[in-house]
């Protein structure tokens, strides 16, 4: 080991954070929007996988990865719409439906995706932000995907809209007190349906990132539970879109610890470090369960707290 080792590890972690955080970010934003309207969608893992498959297939056939991204979003919106529709029916538990939708989403993705495991589809390009540094490692780490920027912009837009637009207030109102919203003539079911659909769209786009940028291929083990982690992220971020982005970067960074250490020759505890995001999730859940602030920020209508 030499002096630059810690630096290399840090750069690798930074690169990892920038590279792998985007799907977390999109799913977390989608879930944030859904939960703000008072509904839980645990099915976003399935949406993510279906989005990944759809994006890859459309990109392969059309030759345009961005068309793939759009298709992934639409596939996600369709799954979200189904979830939203089923949850509107009386006496339906959104947590149970969400789990069913998760299995459904991954199931149809595997079913239709069999044919796309072998072929290579055109992938999304990247933007180099680090060439000026003159440091090859830093330059690689700072290669980012336009979707990440889109994600950050969506988060800022959501954060602004929740406070400054009629729609934003109506979504928060439906999520916090359905009777009040109904007393104002707001159709809570419709708001939740639309929020769930839009949330599905975002999660689908997150899936496109997985298959079209990083890791950049379609296979059945692509997501490995990232969609579920992202749902936990929303609780950690206390239903704030900006904090969702920060949490996604934190998750990306912890996920990169293992590979980063391996790249400098530290192989001890490789699997342990790879589990870091999951261990982090666990601790976050424990910490936020006892957090008084989380209790204040949670939308009052969420069925997980009723």
């Amino acid at each position: 080991m030499n002096d630059s080792t810690p630096l290399i590890v840090l750069i690798a972690i930074l690169g990892g954070a920038l590279r792998v955080s985007t799907p977390f970010m999109f799913v977390a934003l989608g879930e944030c929007l859904t939960e703000k309207s008072g509904r839980v969608n645990l099915g976003l893992e399935g949406t993510l996988v279906l989005g990944a498959m759809t994006a890859y297939a459309v990109s392969y056939h059309s030759g345009s990865p961005w068309l793939g991204v759009l298709a992934a979003g639409l596939a996600g919106a369709a799954l979200g719409g189904i979830h939203g529709f089923i949850c509107k029916l009386p006496k339906v538990n959104d947590v149970a439906v969400g789990i069913a939708m998760m299995l459904f989403g991954t199931g149809i993705a595997f079913f239709f995706g069999k044919a796309y495991i072998q072929p290579t589809a055109p992938r999304l390009g990247s933007i180099s932000l680090g060439d000026w540094t003159g440091n090859a490692q830093l330059a690689t780490a700072l290669q980012i995907n336009p979707l990440m920027i889109v994600g950050i912009l969506v988060a800022i837009l959501m954060w602004w809209a929740f406070a400054n637009t009629r729609w934003g207030l109506i979504v928060r109102m439906s999520g916090d007190s359905a009777p009040s919203a109904m007393a104002m003539g707001v159709s809570v079911d419709l708001v939740r349906f639309l929020a769930t659909t839009a949330g599905g769209f975002l999660a689908g786009v997150g899936g496109a990132f997985l298959s079209l940028y990083y890791p950049g291929s379609w296979n059945q083990g692509l997501s490995s539970g990232q969609g579920l982690m992202a749902v936990a992220l929303v609780i950690f971020a206390r239903w704030d879109p900006i904090r969702c982005v920060a949490a996604a970067f934190l998750f990306g960074a912890t996920g990169a610890i293992g590979p980063a250490l391996q790249s400098v020759g530290v192989t001890q505890g490789y699997y342990f470090f790879n589990a870091a995001p999951y261990i982090l999730t666990l601790f976050i859940m424990i910490a936020s369960a006892g957090s008084k602030k989380a209790g204040r920020d949670v939308p009052g209508e969420l069925s997980i707290i009723k």
Binding site: L169, R172, M173, G175, D176, S177, P179, S180, A181, A183, D297, P299, G300
Partner: peptide
């Protein structure tokens, strides 16, 4: 004005 409050608590 209802017996219970109809203001949205988080707003």
């Amino acid at each position: 004005v209802y017996q219970h409050f109809t203001l949205v608590p988080c707003l």
